Simulated scan of single mutants.
Amino acid sequence: MKKPTAAPTAATSPKDDEQFIKPAYKIERVLLYMVQHGSINRLEAEKPPVYDHALNSTMSNEVKLRLGLEFTSTPEKAIGYGGLPAIYHRYKLTPASKQKAKQVINDYRLKRGAELISWEMAS
Results as ranks from 00 to 15, higher is better:
Ser39Pro: 07
Ser39His: 11
Ser73Pro: 00
Leu93Glu: 01
Glu44Lys: 15
Gly80Phe: 10
Ala114Thr: 11
Glu115Phe: 05
Thr74Ile: 14
Gln36Phe: 12
Asn61Lys: 05
Lys102Asn: 05
Lys98Tyr: 03
Phe20Thr: 14
Gln36Asp: 14
Asn106Met: 10
Gly113Asn: 08
Asn41Glu: 10
Ser97Asn: 03
Gly38Thr: 07
Tyr33Arg: 08
Thr58Lys: 01
Ile27Asp: 07
Glu44Phe: 02
Lys47Phe: 03
Pro49Gln: 12
Lys64Gln: 11
Phe20Pro: 09
Lys100Thr: 09
Ile105Ser: 12
Thr58Gln: 07
Tyr51Gly: 09
Ser60Phe: 00
Ser97Thr: 02
Phe71Gly: 00
Tyr91Gln: 04
Leu84Asp: 10
Asp107Phe: 11
Tyr88Ile: 06
Ala54Glu: 10
Tyr91Ala: 06
Ser60His: 02
Glu46His: 13
Tyr25Asn: 14
Lys64Tyr: 08
Lys92Met: 10
Tyr33Val: 07
Tyr81Ser: 04
Tyr81Arg: 07
Thr72Ile: 03
Arg90Tyr: 08
Ile79His: 02
Ser73Cys: 03
Asp17Thr: 15
Phe71Gln: 00
Gly80Trp: 12
Ala114Tyr: 10
Leu84Glu: 07
Lys98Gln: 12
Asn61Trp: 09
Ser60Thr: 03
Val30Glu: 14
Thr74His: 06
Asn106Asp: 11
Ile87Ser: 14
Glu120Asp: 15
Ala45Val: 04
Ile79Thr: 09
Glu62Thr: 05
Ala45Gln: 03
Asn106Ile: 12
Ile105Asn: 08
Leu67Ala: 01
Met34Asn: 05
Val30Arg: 01
Ile105Gln: 10
His89Cys: 13
Gln99Ala: 12
Arg112Ala: 09
Pro48Tyr: 09
Ala45Arg: 11
Val50Lys: 00
Leu31Val: 13
